[in-house]
Each structure stands twice: as structure tokens, then as C-alpha cells.
């Protein structure tokens, strides 16, 4: 059913630290590796060894430059995947019932057995989080690794989304954003976590931690190390100068 649940108590999602992300794309690769071989149709590539390779990805890393009016600009690496919105427009537009938001944990998923590949959900998403797979003809999107996080067949430390498990910088965090006492909620509160395109009214669950502002050289310069000598050194200084 493509009507949205009124609210979900648990809101599983990601918190992405833009201050820490180094733009290595390891999350992109591990996401593709896990999701091409598990839940649903594989993430196909077209012309992978040719002149114009492209493929389906559930997570992509953009790089931006934020330019303040004065001072240095800041390079920000920006991973982007489905934000598992509370008010997900991609779900309600779906005509076949393939798109849905889970009541138990808020994850937005596509039931590929019902998807007819019309692409309307991708049109409805402001974030570009859904890609139609050209080979299988069904819509692909981040599943929050629903086949890992509850999977009792893998070690406990692996029961997080593949991108979170692999991030070498620790820039990605996974947890319940519906629980104000969870680590991720505290992190969001402490660092001023933000929504992307709040004006679209989608109420995204995933949050982004803004990059910390850069130091200005004038404010952050070290104290001068040499001071006027005193005592024995002052006498030595004078004596040496006289020679």
C-alpha cells in the first residue's frame, strides 16, 4: 500500500558528518558490492569497460566548494543516498504499490515484484535518490541494508549498513533517529544536524552534520615564540652583543 504510515516510532537512518568525510568513495563501492549481490535485482553496469561506462548506484559522493564572502573556500565531500523521508513523496505517487515505507522502522523500500518501471517515484524525489536500473527495468534505491541490520547470520559488528561499516573516516553513523536518547540523535543535537532541502517538506530522517568552519590565519596563529630574555640569558645576550 502506497499510503504512508501516520508515524513510525522507530526511524532508522544515517547521520553523515560532512566535516569528516574525505571523499574517498569507499561507501559507494561497498554499497554497490553488497547490494548488487543481495536484496533484489543486481545493480547493473552499462558499457563497463568501454568508452562511456555508467551504472546504477544507491549512493554517490558529490564534491562541492562552499565559498564565503571573505576568506578561504571550503571543500566539502557530500555522500548522498535515500534519506528515508517521513513524508516520502516517492511512496505516495507509486501506482502499483511497489514503493512503501515500513511501519516498524521507517525504511523506504521498493518491492521489485510489483514495480513497473514508470519512473514517477524518481521524479517525485527531490534528492535524486532513486535510479531506474536499465537492465532489470525496476527502480533501485538505498535499502539501509535491511538484509544486514537484522541479519543474525553475520557477526554483530557487521549489522549496520555496508557504507557505515566500511567508512574509513568514521563519517557515517547509523541508528534510530526516532529515539532522542540514541547516539545518533545526541550527535545530531550536539552538532546541529540539518535536513537537505527542508523547503520540499519531505521531513528526511537522515541528517547531515555541517562542516566546522575553518580557522582564519589571523585568529589561529601561534603566539610568537621569542620573548625578551631576562636573568642570566639577558646578561649573556648583552655580553655576546658587546663582543
Amino acid at each position: 500500500m502506497t499510503t504512508l504510515p501516520e508515524s513510525t516510532e522507530t526511524k532508522l537512518g544515517l547521520v553523515i558528518d560532512l566535516d569528516t568525510c574525505v571523499g574517498c568513495h569507499a561507501c559507494v563501492v561497498s554499497c554497490k558490492e553488497w547490494n548488487t549481490s543481495n536484496y533484489g535485482a543486481p545493480l547493473s553496469d552499462i558499457d563497463p569497460y568501454g568508452a562511456e561506462p555508467e551504472g546504477t548506484f544507491l549512493n554517490r559522493v558529490h564534491s562541492y566548494e562552499a565559498m564565503p564572502e571573505t576568506g578561504c573556500s571550503q571543500t566539502v565531500h557530500f555522500p548522498k543516498s535515500c534519506l528515508h523521508c517521513e513524508d516520502a513523496p516517492c511512496v505516495t505517487v507509486c501506482p502499483t504499490g511497489a514503493s512503501y515505507k515500513r511501519e516498524e522502522d521507517g525504511i523506504v523500500l521498493v518491492n521489485e515484484a510489483d514495480c513497473m518501471g514508470c519512473g514517477l517515484c524518481a521524479w517525485a524525489c527531490p534528492y535524486g535518490a532513486r535510479e531506474l536500473d536499465m537492465l532489470s527495468g525496476v527502480m533501485k534505491k538505498c535499502t539501509l541494508c535491511v538484509d544486514r541490520i537484522y541479519n543474525e547470520n553475520i557477526p554483530e559488528e557487521d549489522r549496520v549498513p555496508s557504507c557505515v561499516r566500511t567508512c574509513p573516516a568514521g563519517a557515517r553513523h547509523f541508528g534510530d533517529l526516532g529515539d532522542p536518547e540514541s547516539d545518533v540523535s545526541k550527535l545530531v543535537a550536539e552538532r546541529g544536524g540539518m535536513d537537505l532541502m527542508p523547503e520540499q517538506g519531505t521531513k528526511p530522517v537522515n541528517k547531515y552534520l555541517p562542516p566546522r568552519l575553518k580557522d582564519r590565519p589571523s585568529e589561529a596563529a601561534l603566539e610568537p615564540r621569542h620573548e625578551d630574555p631576562s636573568g642570566l640569558f639577558a646578561w649573556l645576550d648583552k655580553a655576546l652583543e658587546k663582543i
Binding site: 562541492y64 564565503p68 532541502m197 527542508p198
Partner: peptide
Amino acid sequence: SATGLGAIGKVRQ
């Protein structure tokens, strides 16, 4: 607004 980086300044790709 898309990137949330407006607090720092103008954003370009």
C-alpha cells in the same frame, strides 16, 4: 538549500 552549506557561503560543484 540542497546541500545545507549555505551557512558557509555560495556553493558550486
